[in-house]
Every structure is written in C-alpha cells, then in structure tokens.
Design a protein around this nucleic acid. Structure first.
Length: 212
DNA sequence: CTCCCGATAT
DNA sequence: ATATCAGGAG
C-alpha cells in the first residue's frame, strides 16, 4: 500500500513532466481569486476565465459585490452553472468579508471556511496561490487520482486530504496537487484515461482496459 | 443523501 | 443522450 518509495517516484515523474505549475484561474488579487475559485465548482477554469474577464470589469471589490443586485451577478456568472447559488454565496461572502475582516480576504483555513460557499477545497486554493500557505487541495481530479494511484482508500475528500498530508512533504502540498490536476486533465482523465500514454503506469495498479 | 446547473466532449 | 468540469450546503 502506500510505499513511500513508490510515492517518491511518482512525485518525481510528475514534477519533471509538469514543471512550473500554477493555477489556471485569472486573478489580480486574493479577492478575485476567491470569487474565481467559487465559480470554478463543476466548471472548467477556461469557462471561469471567460466569465470573470467581464465580471471584474463591472464588479471589483467586496463592496461592489455586497451592493450589487443578485440578478445582476447571476446574469454575469450564468455560463459557469449553479449561478443562483454561486451569486448568493459570492454576495454573502463579500458582506462577511466586509463585516468580519474589514474588506480583506482572511488568510487562515478556519476563517475562509467560515465564509458562505467556501469549503476546504476553495480555502486551500486561496491559501496556496494568494498567501503561499501549504494546503492539500482535493478537487475532483485529486480525489480520483488519489484512489487510482492508491494514495488513499477513502472516498471522502476530507479523509483523502489528511491521507495525502501524511504522504506528501508539506512544502510540496500545493505543487503536488497541481501536478495531479494537470495530470488528470491530460492523462488520468475520469472518462477515458490514457493509460498507454501514462508516465507512471508501471507504478500504478489501476488499469483502464476500455480505451478505444 | 439530494440539490444546484451551463458548456463541452464523447 | 450521457458524463464531466479546480464543490458546497441543507
């Protein structure tokens, strides 16, 4: 099971293949990153970036969002899906940031997850990219690949997060998750994983034999 | 567990 | 037609 040597080999291969990883979300400041990450739920980063380009021209600060009518925000973010929930969360989130944190995005996991619409995944993305604070980001790709590569037996994202925290050095938490995400988009895809092209296939027991 | 939900790939 | 995309709340 989680042999440390095998984990090290996989980390090294992915690190070499995906050098210089970074979030694909476009943002100018921590608040924009927070909004973009909320919008990224069940949506591609590409689609989020299309929407936020126009969105952030009209609404920039927590004060702008807190005072904006829900219908306006809904229309601006509609193409990302879940637009009613997301609009409500972003507006309430903005109000909370103003009231509790003087208009500044807080830089701790506890404070971030206390905001409406912000779970551990979103919080860890913001902590890592905006504040340089290490965190394991368990999104759909990380959860899927953690199981395929046998990094975790759990299906619960929070348990996967803690399993990975034990296996991966803290300094590499953020980059490691980004490596898995890049890897998940390119090779270890949910639907049709490209096992024949996979750089870590020899270290992996998961084999998808249904590729066309 | 269900609900939220549009855009794109297969 | 169905599955999936940097999930979170009730």
């Amino acid at each position: 099971m989680k042999t440390s040597a095998r984990t090290g080999k996989i980390r090294k291969i992915l690190r070499a293949r995906y050098s210089d990883v970074r979030t694909q979300l476009d943002y100018e400041n921590p608040f924009e990153l927070l909004v973009s990450t909320i919008l990224s739920a069940q949506c591609t980063d590409k689609q989020v970036n299309i929407v936020t380009k126009a969105l952030f021209k009209k609404l920039k600060t927590p004060y702008d969002f807190a005072n904006a009518p829900a219908e306006i925000v809904e229309q601006l973010i509609r193409p990302t899906g879940y637009f009613r929930n997301k609009a409500k969360n972003i507006i309430n989130c903005s109000k909370a940031i103003i009231e509790k944190f003087n208009g500044e995005v807080p830089a701790s996991l506890e404070e971030l997850t206390g905001l409406p619409g912000v779970g551990r995944k979103t919080a860890n993305v913001v902590l890592g990219a905006a504040f340089g604070i290490p965190g394991i980001v368990v999104d759909t790709h990380v959860a899927r690949i953690a199981q395929r590569l046998d990094f975790s037996d759990n299906k619960d994202p929070v348990k996967i997060e803690f399993d990975l925290m034990e296996i991966i050095p803290k300094k590499e938490w953020n980059d490691f998750c980004l490596h898995l995400i890049y890897f998940g988009r390119e090779i270890c895809k949910s639907r049709k994983p490209l096992c024949p092209d996979c750089p870590v296939t020899k270290l992996c027991d998961y084999k998808d034999k249904s590729f066309a």
